[in-house]
Design a binder for these strands. Structure first.
Length: 321
DNA sequence: TACTGTTTTCCTGCTT
DNA sequence: GAAGCAGGAAAACAGT
C-alpha cells in the first residue's frame, strides 16, 4: 500500500539497486566504509592524474586558528616537519594515487609529521587495515626518494610556458610508487612504541558554516542525495533492519536502529569522517520543506517518507521473508 | 561568473 | 544529564 498513491505511482522495477555498493559494506562491516569512488571505473589515466592534481593543489585548513597550508607544502620538507594539515594533504594525494577518496582512508593517520614518521608498518596497518600497508610503503619510499617525490609534483605542476603533461617519466615514477606493493627502501624509523594520539582535536571554537573541504575533489559522478541513500538502506537486507528499519510500512514510517552507524555510512559515502547523526538529522529535517520526509511527532529516530519521495516501496519490508 | 540547490556545521532552546 | 528534535544562520560545494 502506498499512502501517497494520490500523489504518485512508482514503478518499483525502475529502481535500480546496486549490489556492488553494498558488497563493499558487507566486506567491511567493522570498517563501515562505503567507498563509492572505488566502484567507479576510472576512465583512463588522465582522470587519475587530474584527481591527483586536484588534491595536490588543494589548500586546506583546520579551523579558524589553523594557518592555511599550501596543498603541496609537504613535498618540500621532511616528513618530520609536516604539520597535521600537510599530512592530510599528503594523505589526500596518496588516496588519489591509490584510486581512493580521502574519506576511504582511516583518519587515524592524520597526525603531525613527527608522529607519522614514528609509526611503523604495523601501526599503519592497525590504524588503517585496508590501506595502511600501501600508505606506509608510499610514505617511506617517498621519504627516501626525493627524486620520485619531486618528479611526481613536477609532472602535475605546470611550469611557465610548459604544459603539465610533458614529463612522462615523472608520471611513471609516481605511478610506480603508487602501485608497488613492496617498498624499495624502508627508513629506520619503523620501530616505534610511541603512544600517538590519533584523534584530531580542534580546541578553538569554529565559526558556523561549513569548513573547507579536506578531501579530494569529487569527479562529476553524482554521489546521490541523502534521502536516496536512506531509501536505499531500507531497500537492502544488509542494512535493513539492522541499521534502519520500517516502523510502519503502510504509513511509510521508518526508524533509525543504529543512528550513529547510519551517519558513519553517510559520512563514508561523502568522504566525511566527521559526520554524526546530529548533522545527518539536520539534513533530514531540511527535507520536510520539500515533503520528501515528513516529521513524526513524539517519536524519536522515526521519520516518514513524504509525497515527493519516490522508489521507497518494497514487496518485503524489513526482509521478513 | 553568477546563481541556485543541497548539504554541512554550529548553535540555542526545547522535549523525552 | 544525555540524547534527540527543531530550526536559524552561515558557509562550502556541485550543478546549471
Amino acid at each position: 500500500m502506498n499512502p501517497f498513491s494520490d500523489y504518485e505511482k512508482t514503478d518499483i522495477s525502475s529502481v535500480v539497486f546496486n549490489q556492488d555498493y553494498f558488497r563493499t559494506f558487507e566486506e567491511n562491516e567493522d570498517h563501515l566504509l562505503l567507498d563509492m569512488d572505488s566502484l567507479v571505473q576510472r576512465k583512463d589515466e588522465d582522470l587519475l592524474m587530474s584527481r591527483i592534481y586536484d588534491s595536490s593543489m588543494k589548500k586546506c585548513s583546520l579551523g579558524e586558528d589553523a594557518e592555511e597550508v599550501d596543498g603541496t607544502g609537504w613535498s618540500s620538507k621532511p616528513i618530520e616537519d609536516w604539520c597535521q594539515e600537510e599530512t592530510i594533504n599528503w594523505l589526500m594525494t596518496a588516496a588519489s594515487c591509490l584510486g581512493q577518496s580521502y574519506g576511504s582512508i582511516q583518519q587515524g593517520l592524520a597526525l603531525p609529521g613527527k608522529d607519522l614518521a614514528a609509526l611503523g608498518r604495523h601501526d599503519f596497518v592497525a590504524r588503517d587495515p585496508v590501506y595502511g600497508e600501501r600508505l606506509y610503503n608510499l610514505l617511506h619510499t617517498q621519504a627516501v626518494s626525493s627524486q620520485c617525490k619531486s618528479a611526481s609534483l613536477d609532472y602535475f605542476t605546470p611550469r611557465h610556458g610548459e604544459q603539465s603533461h610533458t614529463d612522462e617519466r615523472g608520471a611513471e615514477n609516481f605511478q610506480s610508487l603508487c602501485n608497488e606493493d613492496e617498498p624499495q627502501a624502508i627508513g629506520s624509523n619503523n620501530a616505534s612504541d610511541a603512544e600517538s594520539d590519533n584523534s584530531i582535536e580542534i580546541s578553538t571554537k569554529r565559526p558556523p558554516g561549513r569548513p573547507r573541504l579536506l578531501k579530494t575533489k569529487k569527479n562529476s559522478t553524482s554521489q546521490g542525495k541523502l534521502w536516496e541513500f536512506i531509501r536505499d538502506l531500507l531497500r537492502n537486507r544488509k542494512t535493513c533492519p539492522s541499521l534502519i528499519c520500517w516502523e510502519d510500512y503502510s504509513q511509510a514510517k521508518f526508524r533509525f536502529v543504529r543512528s550513529d552507524e547510519v551517519a558513519k555510512l553517510w559520512g563514508s559515502r561523502k568522504g566525511n569522517t566527521k559526520m554524526t547523526y546530529e548533522k545527518l538529522s539536520r539534513a533530514m529535517r531540511y527535507y520536510y520543506k520539500r515533503k520528501i520526509f515528513l516529521p513524526v511527532l513524539g517519536r524519536r529516530l522515526v521519520y516518514q517518507f513524504g509525497p515527493n519521495a519516490t522508489g521507497w516501496q518494497t514487496d518485503n519490508p524489513n526482509f521478513r521473508f
